[in-house]
Amino acid sequence: MAEIVRLSSEELLGCAKELAAVLVDTVASGASVGFTGSIDLAEATAWWEGLAPDVADGALAVWAARSGDRIVGTVQLRQGRMPTHRHRAEVAKLMVERAARGIGVGRALLATAEAAAADAGSTLLVLDTETGSAAERLYAATGWTRVGTIPDFAADPAGVLRPTTYYYKSLA
C-alpha cells in the first residue's frame, strides 16, 4: 500500500514535477479534473508550484501517496475561510495514476482528507466530480451523499461539456 504524507509548501515545490506527472496521466486517462488533454508536464508543474502560497498559509492542504520512490496519487483539502464557512471544507483533485488504480490508493487518500478535516474542526465536506466517473463510485461507496447534477458543467479533457455531480459528507 502507498504511504500518504501531507506536503509542506517546500515539499510541494520539491515534488511538483512528480505531482505533475500524476496530473498529466490522470487527464490522459480521460478524468475531468479541470484540465484539457493538451496539458503537458511543464504546464502541470507550474500549476502545482502555483499552489505553494495557499499551502504555506494553510488555505490548502495537499497529500501525496508514495509507492516506493514514486508519487502515485494526491488529494487536496480546502478549508472554508469566510466566517460562515469555517465548519466546512472542500475535497478536490483526488487523482491516482492509472498504474496504481484499483488497489485502494484513492480510498486511502480520501480517508486521509476526511480525517484531517475532522481534526481541523470541519463538520461538513463537499466535492464535485464528473457524473458517471469511477470517482463517483468511490464516493458512493465511502458514505458520501449525492446532492444533484448540473448539466454541461465542465469540459472533459477532450473539450466535451459533461455534467458534474455534487456530494457532501457530514462529519458531525
Rank of each mutant, 00 (worst) to 15 (best):
residue 52 A to E: 05
residue 110 L to Y: 00
residue 67 S to L: 13
residue 75 V to K: 10
residue 40 D to P: 02
residue 59 A to K: 15
residue 94 L to K: 07
residue 102 G to L: 07
residue 38 S to A: 13
residue 28 A to K: 14
residue 51 L to A: 11
residue 106 G to S: 07
residue 81 R to K: 13
residue 83 P to T: 10
residue 75 V to F: 03
residue 32 S to L: 11
residue 98 R to I: 01
residue 50 G to F: 06
residue 86 R to H: 11
residue 81 R to C: 09
residue 31 A to G: 04
residue 78 R to I: 11
residue 92 A to Y: 08
residue 32 S to P: 02
residue 48 W to E: 01
residue 42 A to Q: 13
residue 64 A to K: 02
residue 37 G to N: 11
residue 54 D to G: 10
residue 67 S to Y: 04
residue 58 G to M: 08
residue 105 V to G: 04
residue 85 H to G: 08
residue 38 S to G: 10
residue 108 A to V: 00
residue 95 M to W: 06
residue 78 R to A: 15
residue 80 G to T: 08
residue 76 Q to N: 13
residue 41 L to S: 13
residue 30 G to H: 06
residue 69 D to W: 01
residue 89 A to Y: 01
residue 58 G to R: 09
residue 98 R to Q: 15
residue 108 A to I: 01
residue 80 G to N: 10
residue 86 R to N: 02
residue 91 V to P: 01
residue 49 E to R: 15
residue 107 R to T: 13
residue 28 A to Y: 09
residue 50 G to S: 08
residue 49 E to I: 03
residue 99 A to K: 10
residue 49 E to L: 01
residue 47 W to A: 13
residue 108 A to H: 00
residue 84 T to C: 11
residue 74 T to A: 13
residue 57 D to S: 12
residue 108 A to N: 05
residue 109 L to G: 03
residue 89 A to L: 07
residue 64 A to D: 00
residue 106 G to P: 05
residue 86 R to T: 13
residue 32 S to F: 07
residue 42 A to T: 13
residue 94 L to S: 06
residue 109 L to Q: 06
residue 53 P to C: 11
